[in-house]
């Protein structure tokens, strides 16, 4: 079955897009992003023509950083909520068996469900492009950076959606599936930092001296964390008021500087590429396991 012909995706697109909810949701989302951007500019006196402070176009880079972090956080909140009910919802609506009795293999059902949320994410991301485009007025961000960011967003939403569908297949109740998905993603996102810290402590304990945390240490500990991958998209404009002095900014600066010191081949494996590769492999595994679990001849009841 071709992806574009996936009846589950087609049905959802048809029913969701013809109602009033989706256009209203997209409008609210774009208005929210615009509001954040305006507030940022207002807060930095960039829209005040009588302001005595100097106009600093580099502030647009910080605005870009704020917006992409906001989008990333929103993706993490919306996608699990959409996908963690996808299979359990069908089960509760008593429509799952009607799907399973058709000639559509279980992996196509799973992929259809994932594609629905990826398509919604793409729709939200594309609709936010005009807002992100505003930072181009001020320069500093290249178009290729935006393209790379979009690819990373799509890969991340595919992985997050795969996790949601996996837990939706595993648990019969939607609420259990939603909570499990958030816990799983939370552990993957922040738990890996505990792994990094734990590793550093062990290494110090073994060598009895303070150790240098290199890019290789970061990479091998944090590669499953989307926050690690996201550090590739941080733009440092290098002044005192920079976004750098946020937790994410600090982390991104540290990792980016470690990449600069890295001499091995690992320096080419940027955080977003490493995390993106993990997303692809983990999604494939989650889809495979979900398909097996969904198969009626394997399920117990």
């Amino acid at each position: 079955m071709k992806i574009i012909n996936n009846p589950i995706l087609l049905k959802d697109m048809k029913t969701k897009l013809r109602g009033w909810r989706t256009p209203v949701l997209i409008s609210c989302y774009v208005l929210l992003l615009t509001g954040i951007l305006l507030l940022f500019f207002l807060g930095n006196n960039m829209l005040d023509r009588y302001s005595t402070s100097a106009f600093d176009p580099r502030l647009a880079v910080d605005a870009y950083n704020y917006i992409i972090v906001f989008q990333f956080a929103l993706l993490f909140l919306i996608v699990p909520a959409m996908t963690a009910t996808s299979i359990s919802g069908e089960r509760e609506r008593q429509t799952l068996e009607l799907m399973l009795v058709t000639q559509t293999p279980t992996h196509d059902i799973i992929i259809g469900k994932i594609l629905i949320s990826v398509a919604h994410s793409i729709l939200l991301l594309l609709s936010s492009m005009p807002v992100l485009g505003m930072v181009f007025f001020f320069g500093g961000i290249g178009i290729m950076e935006i393209v790379k960011l979009l690819i990373f967003y799509v890969l991340t939403s595919f992985f997050v959606a795969s996790s949601g569908v996996f837990f939706s297949t595993l648990f019969r109740k939607s609420i259990v599936a939603i909570i499990s998905t958030y816990i799983f993603l939370g552990l993957l996102t922040f738990g890996t930092f505990f792994v990094l810290g734990f590793r550093a402590i062990i290494m110090e304990y073994v060598t009895h001296s303070s150790i240098d945390v290199t890019y290789a240490t970061y990479l091998t500990s944090l590669f499953p964390s989307p926050v690690f991958g996201f550090t590739s998209f941080y733009f440092d404009k290098g002044d005192y008021y920079s976004f750098r002095y946020s937790l994410w900014g600090e982390l991104a600066s540290e990792i980016n500087s470690q990449i600069a010191y890295e001499t091995s081949i690992l320096r080419f494996l940027k955080p977003w590429i490493a995390n993106g590769l993990f997303d692809i492999l983990a999604s494939a595994l989650l889809i495979f396991m979900s398909s097996i679990m969904l198969s009626p001849l394997i399920r117990k009841k």
């Binding site: 009846p7 000639q103 559509t104």
Partner: peptide
Amino acid sequence: SEYMEFYGGLQGIY
């Protein structure tokens, strides 16, 4: 009609 076409799609009929 959409309901029927949805299940038609699941059965590979388009």
